[in-house]
Write a protein that binds this DNA or RNA. Structure first.
Length: 427
RNA sequence: GGGCCCGUAGCGAAAUUGGUUAUCGCGCCUCCCUGUCACGGAGGAGAUUGCCGGUUCGAGUCCGGUCGGGCCCGCCA
């Protein structure tokens, strides 16, 4: 007999069917035993008698009669005729997966990741993550972006600084990519519009609920832009379409987290950094401590402001100062202390950084000198600008942060299958 | 790098100003139950309170050390 997927069980009503899956829960009422069995497509109630011998977690193949029954969740149940345990649980599960809420501390959740991922609520996170990746790729292609994959083993650090991982590379020393920045800019000179979904490594020893040392970046770069608003507007519409797709295809998973608002505004509010700091002070009486940047508390309030004033979960903060942005960022023509760089906040957390880049060789060299950055090892990148790279810009977006904010997760680590932080390299 | 906090059965928590046998829920084991769906009921097992030392008649609780972990800031996505 051929296997029937649980979501298609209705097609077998009134017949015998073979289902394969895992024992998720057992409710033993004496003469009647209810098994909750799930496969990758869904969950069904299986009815057995007291002679049945299974444990939670067992992988089973069940042949049984499928009938409609109002008393079963989902409306259908399978009466066991034959049950075979194809792989059995030899130790009690260290965590209780049968309850609606897993109720584990983050550390336990991650230590037992292979098991905690079996829980429906935990799985939902990664079903949505899958949809996030799918929607990003779909929408980016719709807008004529070409998907690229760039190397993560690099001969030099992308953006300077000491926050990169060093690895042995035969006779040499290599670093792990902190960003695909150089490569995606180079590729603007080839395909004009490119995007990448790839690993990003950051060697910063941070201990927060929004940082990890390895994450998946959703990057993009586009040529022949008029100004950086071309970039932010593209990101805006891309997100709008992505969220629509996720909402449509991932409804059952979003419902598990009670996500109500998946609306991305037609036009995400766009406020200069210097402006938003004034607003935050006026509206909420909070003074952002940094001269040049906005702190997490300030970001939260900026998100609050977007919510209150514009009914938006998103807000662009623009014109970050020259001193705080990397050397390839286009300085503002109106005020040389500012740049055409922006951040995008989602529910008060930075999820993307972007802007216009310098596209002229002389300007780039001049800017590097001003920032006291050496060009050694970067010639492969810099030389490209001798050969007519069009005005361009792009963004880098943190995929896991989007999911964290979307679902209101306590930690970004919940949105990563096997997160890497300062202390965690296993599992 | 700076600051704050936490280690109690497999899991999640409790334990009054230090007080006598360390408590509860889930899970596990045994028994009862033919319609449960977080099934229910009865009973049971399971803990060197991270580790070392100190104060005290007495330490899960106070002090010192040590090991392990978490959070906030900085920085960033």
């Amino acid at each position: 007999m051929e296997r029937v997927l649980i979501k298609k069980i209705a097609e077998c009503e009134g017949k015998n069917a073979l289902i394969k899956g895992r024992i998720f829960n057992i409710r033993n009422l004496g003469n009647i035993v209810f098994l909750v069995v799930s496969d990758y497509t869904g969950t069904i109630q299986v009815v057995a008698d007291k002679s049945i011998k299974v444990k939670t977690g067992d992988s089973v193949e069940i042949t049984g009669f499928v009938k409609k029954d109002e008393r079963a969740k989902g409306g259908y149940e399978v009466k066991v005729e034959k049950l075979e345990v194809v792989s059995n649980t030899i130790e009690d599960l260290p965590v209780d997966l049968s309850k609606e809420d897993l109720n584990l501390n983050l550390v336990t959740l991650l230590d037992y990741r292979p098991l905690s991922l079996r829980h429906p609520r935990v799985q939902a996170i990664f079903r949505l993550y899958d949809l996030l990746l799918k929607s990003y790729e779909t929408v980016m292609r719709e807008y004529d972006f070409t998907e690229i994959k760039t190397p993560k083993l690099l001969g030099s650090a992308t953006e300077g600084g000491a926050n990169f991982f060093k690895v042995k590379y035969f006779e040499k020393e290599a670093t792990l990519a902190q960003s695909p920045q150089f490569y995606k800019q180079i590729m603007v000179g080839v395909f004009e519009r490119v995007f990448e979904v790839g690993s990003v490594f950051r060697a910063e020893p941070h201990f927060t609920t929004r940082h990890v040392n390895e994450y998946i970046g959703l990057d993009a770069e586009m040529g022949f832009i008029k100004d950086f608003y071309d970039v932010s507007k593209t990101l805006n519409v891309v997100l709008k379409k992505m969220f629509r797709m996720i909402e449509k295809e991932g409804k059952e998973y979003l419902d598990l987290y009670g996500v109500k608002n998946m609306e991305v505004p037609e036009e995400i509010p766009c406020i200069k950094l210097s402006e938003i700091k004034k607003i935050i002070k006026e509206e909420y009486g909070y003074e952002v401590p940094s001269e040049t940047d906005i702190d997490p508390k300030g970001e939260e309030l900026a998100g609050q402001y977007a919510r209150d004033k514009f009914n938006s979960d998103f807000i662009f903060i623009t014109h970050y100062p020259w001193s705080d942005r990397p050397f390839y960022t286009m300085p503002s023509l109106e005020d040389e202390k500012e740049t055409y760089g922006f951040d995008l906040l989602y529910k008060g957390l930075e999820i993307a950084t972007g802007g216009q880049r310098i596209h002229k060789y002389e300007d780039l060299i001049k800017n590097m000198k001003k920032k006291k950055i050496k060009s050694e090892g970067m010639e492969f990148y810099l030389d490209v600008f001798k050969y007519g790279i069009p005005p361009h810009g792009g963004w880098g977006m943190g995929s896991e942060r989007i999911i964290k904010q979307m679902l209101g997760l306590d930690s970004i680590k919940e949105a990563i299958l096997f997160p890497r932080d300062v202390k965690r390299l296993i599992p």
